[in-house]
Design a protein around this nucleic acid. Structure first.
Lengths: 202, 202, 202, 202
DNA sequence: GATGAATGAGCATTCATTCAT
DNA sequence: AATGAATGAATGCTCATTCAT
C-alpha cells in the first residue's frame, strides 16, 4: 500500500507546511487531522508516521522556529560591540523573523496555550533565553548610558509584545514591507527606551 | 425540579464570572460546558437558559467589554482639548481597562478567533471604532505639531498591540501595579511617537 | 401569575387546535412542547395543566376523533336496511370524516406509532370496532347476494387503507371537493367489491 | 483499534439490514444510533464511517428501493403492448415489491416526512416517475377503450395509496401469500377502473 | 510507508417534565 | 392558572488515535 515515490524526507516538509497553514488559519484546537490529511493527500492514520500526536506536531512546529530565532539572534549579536548596536540588531532581527515566518510565529503566539504543562514549560525555557538576551542588552545600554533610566522588565515585556504582535496584524499582501517595518521598529524602540540620539552622547 | 431560591439575576452573573475564568484559563475551545456547569453547580443543559450556544456566550462576553471600553474612552476624551492630552487620556484609560478587566480583555485578544464569520465581523466593526479613536488623536497631534512625523497606521497598530498585549503577561499578583503601568505607558507612548517634551514646544 | 381572563374551557380548545396543526405539519416526534407553548402564547410548563404528558395529548387527540367517527357511522347505519345501502353509507361517511377532519385523521394514520403499547392497544380496540362494522356490512352484502364472491378480510383492509389514505394526499385547497370524493369512492368501492349494478339483480 | 476481520463490504449490508429493522419497528425519529450500533456490534461513532448523518441513512434507504422499484417496473412494462396488460403488470409488480420488501416500503411510506426539504423534494421527483407511469397506463387504457370513463388523477392516487398501504398491515407470517395478493389486486383494480371484461369488448 | 476500519471518550445541545413561587 | 428556573436523561456527532492488513 505504499504510495510510489513517497519518501519521508519529502513528505515531512509537505506535512509541515500544510499544518502551519491550517493552524494559522483555524487555530490549533479548531484544525483537525482530517483536514490535514486531505491537504497532503493522505489518510488521517498515515500522518502518525510523521508525528506521534497532534500536540507533538504543534510542539515541534513552535519549538523549531523558536530555536532558530534564538540561535540566529545570538549569532548576529556576537559581532556587536555596543549595547545600543545590540538593541538595533536584536529588534531588526526579531522583526525580520516575525515577518518572514509570520505564520509560525503567529502560531507560537496564539496556540502555545494548547501545549501540555511539561511541553509548555520546556517551550518557556527557550523563550526565556530570548527574554534574557533583550534584558542583557537593555542592562548593558544602561551601564553604557546610552538609554534613559527605564524599568527593564516591563520595557522588555512591552517591546517583545509589540514585535511578536506584528504577526497578529501583518498581512504579506499588505502595504508594509520588511524594510519599512525594520526601520520603523528600530527607530521606535530607540525612542521608546529613551536612547540618546546618535552623536549626542558626550 | 426547580432549585429553591434560584433567581435569574443572581445566576447570570455567576455564570458570567465562571465562564470568564474558565475561558481565561483553558481557552475557549478547550473549555467545555460540563466544566462550566459544574463550577456554577448546575446541569449542563440548564446553562442554555442563559445563552443559546457556547459561541453566543463567548460573543456576549467579548462584545460587552469592548463596548464598555469604547464608550468609556469616548466619554473621557470628550473633556480633553489637546491632541497630546487625548493621547495621554486614551493610553491611560486603555491600560486601566486591560489591567482591571484583564481576563475578559485577554479572552477578547485570544479567543475572538472562535467566533463565526458574522459575529467576528460585527466584533471587528466595534473594534474599528477604537482604532479610529486613536488614529484621530494621532492625526490631531500631528496637526498640532505636538508629535514627530510618524506613520500613523503602523504607529497605531503597534501601540494597540502593546497595550492590549498587557493582558498576556499581566498577573494581578505580580509586582506591577496599575498606577506604575499607567505612568509607564503614558510616558513610553509619548516617547514612542516622538512627543515634544512638555514645555519644549516653541 | 394567572393570565387575566384565562379559562380552562377556552384554553383547551386552543391548545387542541394548535397541537393538531403542529403534529400534522411536523409529525408527533418532531414537534415539541416549546413550539406548542409559543403557538398558544404560554410557557411550556403551563401546558401541563391541560395534559399530563405529551403522549397523553396525542392519545386524547386520536382517540377522540376515532370515537366520534365510529359513533357517527353507527348512527348513520342504524337507519339502513340493505347491505349495499350500508356499504354506501359507510364509505360516504368515512370519506366525509377524512376530508372534514383530515388533519386529525392524518395524525391517527401516521403518529399512532408513537403511542405506548397499552395506549396503542386501547386505540386498536376502538379501531377494531370500525373494521368489524365494515366486515359485517360486507358479509351481509354477500348473504344478500349484492356483491361478488370476494375475500372479506383483504377487501376490508384495502378499502380502509384507501379511504383513510385520502388524508395523506388530500389538500383542502386542492381541486377535489367533498361531494366529488364521496361519489367517486362510493362508486369505486361498489365496483371494487363487484356489486351487482342497481336494477340488475334478478 | 481496528476489529480484526472487519470489511467494508460486509459491514454496510449488516448496518443496512439492522437500520431497516430498527426504523421499521420504532419509526425513524424514535430509533437512535446507539441502538443501531449495539445491534451491529459497533460503537456509535463508527457508524459514521458508513453514512454522514442519520438523515442521510434514511435517505439512502428509501431512495434506493424507490429507484429499484421504478427501474424494475419500467423494465417489465417495456414488453407489454396493451394498456390493460400494462395495468396488470404494473399492479402485479408493485404488489410484489411491497410484499417482498415490505419493511423498506413501509419506511418509505411513513418516515419520508423526516427528510429535509431538499431530500424530500428529490425523493418526490423519483416518486413522480411512478405516478406518471400509472397515469400513462390509465390514459392509454382509456384511449384503447379498455376501461371506463374514470377521473385519472384520483383513480391513480387511490390505487397507489391502496397498494403502497399494503405494507401497513401486511405481516409476512400472516395468512395472505404473495400470489393471492397479486391476483386479488390485479382483479380488484381491474374492477376498480371499470375494465371491460376480457372478451367482452366488441 | 500507507490504508481501511474501527474505537472510545467526549461534546454541545435538546427536550419533556417538575415544582417553588 | 400560569411562570421562571431548573433537571436529567438522552441524542447525534466529532475526532485523535490504533492497528491488522
Amino acid at each position: 500500500m505504499r504510495t510510489p515515490g513517497s519518501r519521508s524526507d519529502t513528505t515531512w516538509p509537505i506535512i509541515r507546511e500544510a499544518s502551519i497553514s491550517l493552524i494559522y488559519e483555524h487555530g490549533f484546537e479548531s484544525m483537525n487531522t482530517r483536514q490535514l490529511a486531505e491537504l497532503v493527500q493522505m489518510k488521517p492514520g498515515s500522518l502518525y508516521y510523521y508525528f506521534s500526536s497532534k500536540e507533538e506536531l504543534l510542539n515541534r512546529l513552535v519549538t523549531e522556529v523558536l530555536d532558530e530565532i534564538v540561535d540566529d539572534l545570538e549569532l548576529k549579536l556576537a559581532d556587536v560591540d555596543t549595547g545600543l548596536g545590540g538593541l538595533d540588531t536584536f529588534i531588526s532581527g526579531l522583526v525580520e523573523w516575525h515577518v518572514n515566518r509570520h505564520k509560525e510565529t503567529y502560531i507560537a503566539l496564539m496556540d502555545t496555550r494548547s501545549l501540555s504543562e511539561e511541553k509548555l514549560a520546556r517551550y518557556m525555557e527557550s523563550r526565556d533565553r530570548y527574554d534574557q538576551l533583550l534584558d542583557e542588552i537593555l542592562e548593558r545600554c544602561r551601564r553604557e548610558g546610552s538609554i534613559g533610566d527605564i524599568p527593564v522588565r516591563i520595557t522588555r515585556l512591552s517591546i517583545l509584545t509589540m514585535i511578536t504582535g506584528i504577526t497578529s496584524w501583518f498581512k504579506p499582501a499588505g502595504e508594509a514591507n520588511l524594510d519599512d517595518l525594520r526601520d520603523f521598529y528600530v527607530t521606535a524602540v530607540r525612542r521608546f527606551v529613551g536612547a540618546v540620539p546618535v552623536g549626542t552622547r558626550s
